[in-house]
Simulated assay, not measured.
Amino acid sequence: MSQSPHEPVGEWWRDQVVALHRWGRLVLRDEDDSVHQMRVTVRRLRSVLATYRPFLDQERSEPLREELKWLGALLGEIRDAEVLRGRLRRWAAKHGPGPTSVDELRAALAERQSQGRELLLPELDGDRYRTLSAALATGLPWSEALPGKKALRKRLRRGWRRLTAAADAAEDAGDAAERHRRLHEVRKKAKRVRYAAESLREVFGKDAERLAKAAKSIQSNLGDLNDAAVMIGTIQLVPAPDEAVRELLAVEQAAADEAEKRFARVWKKANRPKAVGWLSP
């Protein structure tokens, strides 16, 4: 008897829940990259709940989405500080040590990361997280209307069309600030397509792999833009910027400009028929 299409998705879900627990333990031990990996796992779970929403028992799935959003926000505070500190370290490695107002920025980011951990760690040992973990472990909350391959492909097609619409809207933005905001929406939709496609590798094989790879390329490109933009906003909060801070700001602005210019090439390659043509009815 052939496997029902929803069953590989359920297996993928169980693998992600196991990964969430594993990364949670490593976060408590302050292992390298653990916060990042746990946050990605949370995003995968949330994205799949959104993608398969019509086929889920929403009385169970919607509370899960909200609780995963809560957990993701806690992780995000730490991860954002980690990313910014990494960018600052790479810049400092090229420019050498020396007392500048960059030190204020470095200290502020370290404090932000520390405060984030102070908020997160008690929660990972608390009742709310244990309740969420237990609910996730019961499996993906399917409703009685289980999807077939055609319905699953339709959900992927819908996700890609929404991504395309977001990319078109970004192209039509009237100014730089609005374009950046719209490109952020493109990034979020690319992540949703990517994680949904990853969950369907056992159903659609190479087609799903190519789609996931295409969406990942968009996500990575716009992630570079987002990281630079967040760093720019953080630098601009420095109360008395000196020459070193102004130089750092120029470097980050150049990185943001380069990532934005690169998007057109990345989008054109990702949106080719080889990657997305199979989604057509």
Rank of each mutant, 00 (worst) to 15 (best):
L248C: 08
G223S: 01
K216V: 03
F263M: 03
H36Q: 12
A177E: 08
V48I: 06
D32A: 15
R179F: 12
D57Y: 12
S114G: 13
T131V: 08
R130D: 13
P97C: 13
A135Y: 04
L88W: 10
R85F: 08
S47G: 03
A254V: 11
L248Q: 03
D172N: 04
L64S: 01
H180Y: 08
I235Y: 09
L211G: 07
R22Y: 07
S280A: 08
P99C: 06
R29Q: 15
L119K: 15
L71Q: 03
P99W: 03
V245D: 15
L225S: 00
L120T: 11
T138A: 14
A190F: 01
G277Y: 09
H95N: 12
L140W: 00
A215R: 02
R210N: 13
K268Q: 10
Q37D: 11
A145Q: 04
A135I: 01
V102P: 00
T41F: 02
L74W: 04
E171Y: 00
A167L: 04
E111C: 14
R29T: 12
Q113R: 14
H95V: 05
L237S: 10
W91P: 10
V266D: 05
W23E: 11
G86R: 12
E178L: 02
A212T: 03
P54K: 11
L84V: 07
R79K: 02
A275G: 06
D207V: 01
L121F: 13
T131D: 12
A110R: 14
F55T: 07
R265H: 12
G76N: 05
I232N: 10
V266G: 04
R79H: 10
V266A: 05
S4F: 10
W267P: 03
D168G: 04
E62P: 04
A93H: 08
L120V: 05
R79N: 09
R161T: 07
S114A: 15
R65L: 10
A197P: 02
E59Q: 07
L56P: 00
A250R: 09
A256F: 03
A134H: 14
P97T: 14
K191W: 05
E202A: 13
P99E: 08
R246Y: 09
E7M: 06
A176D: 15
A212F: 02
L222H: 11
A254S: 14
I235K: 01
P8H: 07
A250H: 08
V251D: 07
R85H: 15
R65W: 02
W142C: 04
R46D: 01
L105G: 02
W13Y: 08
D207R: 08
E77F: 00
R22I: 04
E104R: 14
R262W: 04
L152T: 01
I78S: 10
A197R: 03
A19T: 03
V193Q: 00
A134D: 12
V42P: 04
R29E: 15
M38A: 10
R46P: 00
H36V: 08
R153E: 04
S280Y: 06
L28T: 11
R112E: 14
Y195K: 02
L132S: 04
K189D: 03
P241N: 05
E144A: 14
R262V: 07
A173N: 06
K154Q: 10
E7Q: 13
E111S: 12
P99K: 15
S143A: 13
S2Y: 01
R179W: 00
A135D: 11
K216A: 13
